[in-house]
Simulated assay, not measured.
Amino acid sequence: MTGIDFPARFAGLDSDVLFGLEYPEGTDGPSDCDAPQEYVEQLLVVLADWRARLLDGTRSDADAYRSALDSVREAWLQYSFRWIGGPALPYPFDLPRTVRPA
């Protein structure tokens, strides 16, 4: 595997992070509605690079890639439908994973 720590770039990513980028001084302060999208676009570029490395065989951490991709999807989904005074949404939308008996 290469020295780039791709998984670390996605650690802690959730809709709160994106919401914090939009309102860096809190919800009473000014908003930067482009910041979350710009951040996600940067993450998509990272995912594209990571994917290419998985496909060419220079990386083997496909499970970590899938987890990062799921994190981006969930964060963007939650952020896209979140607004002050909006509905309470489940986090995450995924159903809990059940353990199947052996």
Rank of each mutant, 00 (worst) to 15 (best):
P92L: 10
L95N: 11
A52D: 12
D63S: 06
E74S: 04
A62E: 07
R73H: 06
R51K: 15
R100K: 09
S31D: 06
I84Q: 12
A8E: 14
D49A: 09
R100I: 08
Q42V: 06
R73W: 09
G3T: 08
V46T: 15
E74C: 07
G85T: 04
G29Y: 02
D61Y: 00
D56M: 05
L47R: 00
D94L: 06
G86L: 06
P36S: 13
P7K: 00
L43A: 03
D5M: 03
A102K: 10
P30G: 09
G86R: 08
G86D: 05
E22M: 06
P24H: 09
A8H: 14
G3D: 15
P101T: 07
A52C: 06
W83P: 00
C33K: 12
A52R: 04
Y91L: 09
L55K: 12
P24A: 12
P24K: 12
L54Q: 01
A48P: 06
A75F: 02
W83S: 05
V45P: 01
S71T: 06
R97N: 03
R51G: 00
D16G: 13
E41P: 01
L69H: 02
G57C: 09
A75D: 02
S80K: 05
R59D: 04
Q78N: 11
A35Y: 05
W76Y: 11
S31P: 00
A75L: 01
D32Y: 10
M1I: 08
V40P: 01
A68E: 01
Y39I: 12
L55T: 08
D61M: 05
D56R: 11
A102P: 08
T2I: 09
Y91W: 13
R97Y: 03
L43Q: 01
S31V: 00
I84H: 09
L43I: 10
L69S: 03
D5S: 14
R59K: 12
R51Y: 00
L95R: 13
A102Q: 14
S31W: 05
I84R: 11
L77T: 03
D49G: 07
Q78Y: 10
P101W: 06
S31Q: 10
Q42K: 15
P96R: 11
I4Y: 12
R51L: 05
R73F: 13
C33I: 09
D28T: 13
G20T: 14
Y23T: 02
S67T: 06
G12T: 03
E22T: 05
F19D: 07
A88V: 09
D34C: 07
G85H: 07
L69V: 04
Y23K: 07
S80H: 03
A62T: 04
L55G: 03
E74I: 04
F19V: 11
P87Q: 11
G29R: 04
L55E: 10
L21E: 01
G57L: 14
V72Y: 13
L89N: 10
G29W: 03
R73P: 03
G85M: 08
D28K: 12
L43K: 03
Y23E: 02
V17W: 11
F10R: 00
L18F: 11
G29Q: 12
Y79W: 13
S60K: 10
D14F: 14
L69E: 06
L18I: 13
S15E: 15
A102N: 14
Q78G: 07
P96W: 13
D32G: 08
D32P: 10
T98F: 11
P36F: 02
L77V: 02
T27G: 00
A52T: 05
E38L: 15
